[in-house]
Design a protein around this nucleic acid. Structure first.
Lengths: 214, 214
DNA sequence: GAATGTCTGATAGCCATGCTATCAGATACC
DNA sequence: GGTATCTGATAGCATGGCTATCAGACATTC
């Protein structure tokens, strides 16, 4: 199974992705070209197969657009220092928030939560959190400060787990991949686990009684 | 400002949403019709304004599709018991995961994390988490168990905050709205805060040095 | 050394989503 | 009574993510 060389048809069969779609990924620069063996022949290897699986993970599971996946994959492939790779991944998975659309009040509240954190002003997450704050108050939900504080605590736990995973890798390529994958899939993982935890806690606190009406 | 009655043009101006878009929301049953005062005249109130803001929050900030937002709004409007409303909101914000696409192994791992939790087998979050597990191992990242465990802890913290917010409301309508909004926006909030926490922890652990490379 | 099948890049098309533009007729209101 | 505005209905448009088709170049088998 080591370093199998194959042509397009086999790559398609093994990845479960249609030939036309693989070509689409190549056109979009998500997938490098094969090794050319003639004007219209090329061979693909296990690296291509892995790359396709990574693309599917980012797009289908992580919910990234093709454009975001491209930026993220470029960051992996680059030889940029890790912090830059991290930053690119963060920007790719966070859809841009126009800074002028969030209120100063919301930013102040969010910054208060993150007192003591070293976070740059244009961190995409900071703006996204502030926008959630604005949305909450705009909808008429007030007193969300406690909710926000506890989410910040949860976020810190998750981010520590992320960084520890990063530390556990040695090579830059492995670190870069875990940064990207963790950034993209961490959101999906958390939201899944939160749903499960909600059901668990809800069933504890609101036990289902016969003919209950609340 | 109480219960202002207005026509379409004013509703559009006050919400910042184009008239055609408001009509689109009505067609899609996101927004109830106005109070008809003639064959081609209708009046709208503050409830419509609030509803539009809620729609924008769900779609633009929470990232719901129009179809998902419709399901969620219907759940709010219904007089269903709260647990059902919760469940609808959960399904609406989680894109469906085909249970046959996740491996038994992944489910076993996820279930091990949630040992002691009361979670039904078809909880969408459980399946989503298992799919992330599969994606992780399919990409060649192993030993993610520690990472998963810590995310589960974070999810529990967040879910507790969710349920406490719910308990803080009294009326069903308020509870239903916080359930829906919290479910939809909680993911966005967390992902923002996690990004910020990542930058914070990363800067602590990998201090930027002059000419550092890694 | 041809016949048959497979590969290639390029191009165009398709479908879903989320609006947006236009229309014709009815009403508001000065 | 005349202009501005409202109404629902319908059609159109932009983007994203594929997917189908094509003509021409190999490859493989006999």
């Amino acid at each position: 199974m080591a370093d199998a060389a194959m042509k397009m048809a086999e790559l398609s069969a093994r990845s479960g992705v249609a030939v036309a779609t693989i070509k689409f990924y190549q056109r979009e620069n998500l997938l490098p070209p094969g090794v050319r063996t003639g004007p219209n022949q090329a061979l693909y290897g296990d690296a291509h197969l892995g790359r396709i699986r990574l693309i599917l993970g980012l797009t289908e599971v992580g919910g990234l657009t093709v454009a975001a996946a491209r930026r993220v994959l470029e960051a992996i492939d680059s030889e940029l220092p890790l912090p830059e790779t991290f930053e690119i991944a963060q920007h790719a998975v966070s859809e841009a928030v126009d800074p002028t659309t969030v209120t100063a009040d919301a930013l102040a509240h969010v910054d208060a939560l993150m007192a003591g954190w070293h976070v740059s002003d244009d961190n995409p997450g900071r703006l996204a959190a502030a926008r959630v704050f604005d949305t909450f108050t705009g909808i008429g939900q007030i007193d969300a400060a406690g909710w926000f504080r506890r989410y910040a605590a949860a976020a810190l736990v998750a981010a520590e787990a992320d960084i520890d995973e990063l530390d556990a890798r040695i090579e830059r390529a492995a670190k870069a991949e875990i940064v990207v994958v963790g950034t993209a899939l961490g959101d999906t993982l958390f939201s899944g686990l939160r749903r499960a935890a909600q059901e668990h806690l809800s069933s504890l606190r609101y036990p289902v009684q016969p003919a209950s009406e609340i």
